[in-house]
Nucleic acid binder design. Structure first.
Length: 478
DNA sequence: ATATTAG
């Protein structure tokens, strides 16, 4: 017991763990205690829980308003409706809040409803935070949109909607997904009925289309959520869409609560966002503490591009499928197809997805993968963020992620999001970075330095034994 | 490069 008590306070007291991203103009700042809920060391028993995952210890929060929030030990502490509690326990199977949920839910749900910018590790339960936020703030008896969530991809919007629908099972709240329909379902906007669902989750383009065509009334919006917020507010096209939606809501509904969630907020984005979102609470994680301990990263040096395909074929298909599902990330749409063709030509079964695939085809590929029919999925960065499939234990970086207009500058955020597709909710996972040539070595080294995390090398790309050994080390093989 | 619209 004494050991348990010592551990967490040390993390919070460590001055190096305390971030300095606090605006000077914020008057009263109160660092919050982020200690894990005291579970008395009972150990609980029962199925593995969301909050068995304990890597959030380095989270640091700042309350800007002088409000003191008490971290929630149980979902019951949050004064959620009985219907929502039933959804959490019976439908979702959650028993206690994870750390990010324990910290942010009081901030989201306590009046006066403050804005929140929150960063937390991949797979730590951010979706539940903002879904509960939306569900708690809408009035189920009023059939008009009251909450909007903006996502970067159709897939993420649909995934978030399905989480929300499960959680809201006993509440009577309904949800619309604002994504462009598959071609076969196309209908002119003029024929569309106005939205009466309380919650709308979608991609920016379609949300704007619905708003400008008066199909989505914004005058009663109380809460606006940005999933993958750093991406939605930093990347140029997304940013203008996001600002536009914020303006529309502001002009018709006035101030509404803003929730910004992501696993990554680089310094530039953090600066920008804390300027735009002046008031509210903030939670950030140091980049050095952001990689998941349970997801082991490896680098594999290969002599040429052909060798990458051989590694996929002989090692990944050999071992990868044994350990669960696999996602292979490539840089371009065209190489998605090339790799897919190269593998299918030799009778290996896999599927692939990228943005120019027909919408209904995309849905089919995702459904088959989520149902477990396909084990290996090749993807562009379409799936880099947010995609949640607990069976994915292995991620392959066939191409390293690089910044736009650059050859040797890695995209650190994309890297972190990609590897976060493995190791959902504290599960074990492994990542293989396939490196070919000097540039890839430079990229890998920069990534190691940025996250202050040494990536172990697989000695020989040709050795089955080597792959077997590291997968055992990662805890994926017996 | 990748993603989101446009009909």
């Amino acid at each position: 017991m004494a050991e348990l008590e010592k551990k967490s306070p040390a993390d919070v007291d460590d001055p190096k763990a305390i971030e300095t991203a606090v605006n000077e103009n914020q008057k009263k700042l109160e660092a919050l205690s982020l200690l894990a809920p005291e579970d008395g060391g009972v150990g609980g028993g029962g199925p593995p829980l969301l909050d068995d995952y304990d890597d959030d210890s380095q989270i640091q929060a700042v309350a800007s308003s002088g409000t003191v929030y008490e971290s929630a030990t149980t979902f019951e502490d949050l004064k959620l409706t009985p219907e929502l509690l039933k959804g959490l326990h019976d439908e979702m199977g959650f028993s206690r809040p994870s750390k990010i949920q324990a910290v942010t839910l009081p901030m989201i749900l306590t009046p006066p409803y403050q804005n929140l910018v929150a960063q937390a590790h991949n797979g730590s339960g951010k979706t539940t935070c903002f879904v509960l936020g939306m569900l708690s703030r809408v009035d189920p008896s009023r059939r008009i949109p009251q909450a909007i969530c903006i996502c970067p991809t159709r897939e993420l919007a649909q995934q978030n909607k399905s989480v929300l629908m499960r959680m809201s099972k006993f509440t009577g709240i309904t949800c619309a997904s604002a994504i462009s329909p598959a071609l076969k379902d196309y209908m002119p906007i003029s024929k569309m009925a106005p939205v009466t669902d309380q919650v709308v989750i979608g991609t920016s383009g379609t949300l704007i289309k619905w708003i400008t065509n008066k199909k989505l009334a914004t005058r009663d919006i109380k809460i606006l959520v940005f999933d993958e917020a750093d991406h939605m507010l930093a990347e140029e096209n997304f940013m203008s869409d996001s600002k536009r939606i914020m303006r529309d809501i502001q002009s018709s509904a006035g101030d509404c609560q803003l929730l910004l969630f992501s696993a990554t907020f680089n310094e530039k984005v953090k600066d920008f966002i804390t300027k735009v979102i002046k008031e509210g609470n903030q939670i950030f994680v140091k980049k050095e503490d952001l990689t998941l301990d349970k997801v082991k990263q490896y680098k594999v040096r290969v002599p040429d591009e052909i060798a990458k395909i051989e590694v996929i074929r002989d090692k990944i298909f050999e071992f990868g499928q044994k350990v669960g599902q696999v996602i292979i990330f490539v840089r371009t749409k065209i190489s998605t197809m090339h790799l897919h063709n190269a593998l299918t030509k030799e009778d290996y079964v896999c599927s692939s997805i990228q943005g120019s695939l027909d919408h209904s085809e995309r849905e089919k590929v995702i459904q088959e993968f989520k149902d477990g029919y396909t084990k290996v999925l090749i993807s562009t960065d379409l799936l880099a963020r947010g995609f949640d499939q607990s069976q994915v234990n292995l991620v392959i970086n066939y191409d390293m992620p690089i910044k736009y207009n650059s050859r040797d500058e890695p995209d650190y955020e994309v890297y972190l999001h990609r590897i976060g597709r493995a190791g959902r909710f504290g599960r074990k996972g492994a990542v293989f970075n396939l490196l070919c040539g000097e540039t890839d070595d430079i990229l890998m080294t920069k990534i190691e330095n940025y996250f202050q995390h040494k990536v172990q090398e697989v000695p020989s790309w040709e050795s089955e034994e080597n792959f077997e050994t590291v997968l055992k080390d990662a805890g994926l093989l017996e």
